[in-house]
Design a protein around this nucleic acid. Structure first.
Lengths: 334, 334
DNA sequence: CTGAAAGCGCTTACAG
DNA sequence: CTGAAAGCGCTTACAG
């Protein structure tokens, strides 16, 4: 291993000078800097993060903590999220250490091991852990950002997609296409995302002074989150808002099997713009979440906290806008 | 921050004793160990990875390097792979730092930054980079394991799925179901995986003294890997081996559109057992790759290299068996 | 069983 | 513009 000391010896200077030169600090002549950098390159010198970290007390690593049950998802949504995050981190010279939060560790309120070993400066929690876990981790002295879920903890930084507003807009669109009888597919008691999506639809109906018919509320999963068979109401609305594309896909299958054509007899919209939106026939009008922007905002927030621009104190809940993707699953029935 | 020194002061011993106690080394009375551990817990002591790393010269971090073009994949196959790897790493008290290899860095033969900064002890390359990159990285003094692709570098550790043998078995199965005219869908010049899958089929045909009809070879993508429209041969074989499920899915669509029923008129098999295998009608008989085992073997190999059980020297190419998943896309035509 | 000393590779604060 | 000294938190090798 080549150290600054080795370069110093060879160059006939002190390690202090080498350190200054390689870090482009003042107090070394340009000529000397050039020479030292050249030597470092020739000798295959590599920085030693641990030594730097010892002095600064910072590691430039961030833990990304994903509860186990979200990391097994077929579509790897959270892993894609993680991939966005590390790209942003890298642009700030940070690294992201992924840790999966096992249900065991979640139960026992264990902080991520990488953080406990001082391998990381902060933790981005990606996906909603149990309430007690959130409370516990908030109490510890851990720089935290919560990503993609709410919490009612006051002293928390939260970045979420604007579920509410996106479905509000989506429903406005349905109404602009002449729909007055609108249903919702989803169990509003499983996650706050689904609940907010439901409420977004509800707000749009309220604003247009349209009633919501409880019989048009179709559950798609049990309270534990497992999909159940969809039960269609006897009389159908002219359009369904589905809480996600996967369920939109299943609903269209169900409707087709009953001889009901989409969108001719019934319109359907989804949420996520994932693979199910393009695989269904017809492809779904849906909402695309802005993963990249969410990752960017959450990461920036974390780095602000760590590098302590003290002006940017206080906590915040940041909502990131999604965008509607128009496809062929909605009919204008005006 | 609490240090060993703080604990030592409070306990009235030296840091050496604290270090020994917390690391469960010999030379401290059980009574004292218990007391020190209790104090450490009470005081919220956290290990300091950087300090340990300075002495040992090791970080217990591994870089997982994925070329950019594999990390954008819709199904996030490589990210799922990464997720398996970190689970194995964690069980050995290691951490995985994901780095995406940009085409720029690939062109300029840049080693992953986390490695250059001595943040990691080794690199697992996941997914095939350019030939020049592989050559360069092999020459540098980096502990390396290549995962999920071949290289003709002799001094390399390689862990791949046994594409060849799996498709050989899959084709044997087709033949056992009475098929004699068997086609292949895939461009054999894009990746070594596809090539090996083709050769596995070919071996099975050879063994059964069946000819391979060049007209049954259907290309599915251009040499750059982009999907192209499938062109069916005028006369169809009784079965097609597809190089992946996605193409199997597309082929079945194509056949259905031409009024050809699967499996009644033509059987189809795929590879990967991904979402396309279950989404196609009928669902595909296919090969499931053993991600978990591959991750386990690759990770173990890396740790062996680092912890230098010198007996386990030398390099190897390790093939991991997949398994056939039987579904409804093959007809017995005996 | 316990501890004083040295050192891992670097940077900061100070002196020249 | 350059460098000697101290220290970041820990562990190893040695002495008692």
């Amino acid at each position: 291993m080549v150290t600054m000391g080795d370069i110093a010896k060879k160059a006939g200077v002190s390690t202090v000078t080498v350190s200054k030169a390689l870090n482009d600090k003042e107090g070394v002549s340009d000529e000397m800097k050039r020479k030292i950098k050249q030597m470092a390159a020739d000798m295959g010198y590599r920085f030693h993060a641990a030594a730097k970290s010892m002095r600064s007390g910072r590691t430039n690593n961030i833990v990304i903590l994903i509860p186990e049950r979200f990391a097994g998802d077929e579509q790897a949504f959270y892993l894609k999220f993680y991939r966005q995050i590390i790209s942003v981190l890298e642009s700030y010279d940070y690294y992201g250490i992924l840790q999966i939060l096992s249900s065991d560790d979640e139960e026992r309120l264990m902080l991520p091991k990488a953080f406990l070993e001082n391998r990381a400066d902060g933790v981005i929690v990606l996906g909603q852990p149990k309430k007690e876990y959130i409370e516990h981790v908030t109490k510890e002295n851990v720089p935290l950002v919560f990503l993609d879920f709410y919490t009612d903890q006051l002293n928390a930084d939260v970045v979420v997609t604007d579920n509410f507003y996106a479905v509000y807009e989506l429903t406005n669109y349905l109404i602009s296409q002449g729909h007055r009888e609108i249903g919702f597919v989803g169990n509003v008691h499983t996650t706050s995302s689904i609940q907010d999506r439901f409420l977004g639809m509800y707000k749009s109906l309220l604003e247009h002074r349209l009633p919501f018919n409880e019989r048009y509320l179709v559950s798609d999963r049990d309270d534990a989150g497992r999909f159940i068979d969809l039960v269609l109401p006897e009389k159908l609305p002219t359009a369904f808002v589905c809480n996600c594309d996967h369920v939109g896909y299943l609903l269209i299958k169900k409707l087709s099997d009953s001889g009901i054509r989409v969108p001719e007899d019934c319109s359907v919209v989804g949420f996520d713009n994932d693979i199910y939106a393009t695989l269904s026939t017809p492809p779904l009008t849906t909402v695309e979440v802005d993963l990249e922007e969410m990752a960017k905002v959450a990461t920036k927030r974390m780095i602000e906290k760590l590098e302590g621009d003290k002006g940017s104190d206080g906590y915040g809940r940041i909502l990131i806008k999604g965008s509607i993707v128009f496809r062929e699953s909605v009919k204008n029935i005006q």
